[in-house]
Amino acid sequence: MSAPILRKKFTKYLINCQYSAIKRESLKIIQRPCPLLYSTTATEKPKWQLVSAVCLERLPIVSAKLNEIEAKFANLQETLEYEYSSLSEFEVRHKKEQALAAKKAKEQEHGIETGETVVQTAQDIEDLWERELKEFDPATREDSNDVKSVERDLDKKLLLVVKQKLGNKEHWVLPQIPWTEGETMRQSAERCLGSSCGSEINARFIGNAPSGVYKYNLPKDLNQDHDGVKVFFFKAHHVTGDVKPGKDTISEHMWLSKDELKDYMHPDYHRTISRFIMD
């Protein structure tokens, strides 16, 4: 029992001696500071490269299909509504006309002619409406399963994912661009959308604040000015237009739903991203 506690305290100590000299003195388990950690404090604060990324979402166009319980409940609601309701004006009229027709049929059996006839009954009107509805041909809810098209999976929220060259390799990521001096992070995100997806695309950015951050270290051997990269994600809603990847940094693009992301992305990247994307 005592061993894990000690280890815990030790790690806490290690952390403390890295950052705070005062705290180091207050902890009196081990009097001696660790020489190993002292050497790391000598290194400089890591330099981060700032990058803006666009999390472009296409909101669902078509209502989602009801699952089992939803369909059941919808059905129940409909019957309840029917049961609690009173007859409408149209239904009352229909009922009256039916009664009249029955009466007339009876009278004709006995050979009595009645002059009263209804020109257009409620049933006729209903049939007319039905015919009109049949004539109208709505667009299909089914769609082509083309991952490059914005008009796929109409009942889901889609995200724009691009194959972008980062370092030496190409990765499936949200389109991103390094921040340059003199602009805000959001402005660089907007610039990123323009440069990577073409001018046709029309999107609406949601707020000035980034909705998430992803940090990764750059390999040491590259000898770069930065030690790592901080990617800030800005959310935007797709309004109109298609993606036209023109730049050589981006070779391909896809519109994916949240569930499909993990098949393409780096697991660590995917974990970070899926935290701030809602279904």
């Binding site: 078509v62 667009a139 299909t140 809810r141």
Partner: peptide
Amino acid sequence: YEVNGPVRTPPI
């Protein structure tokens, strides 16, 4: 901010 939908069938 205004967003329309989702609807039963997509617009023609």
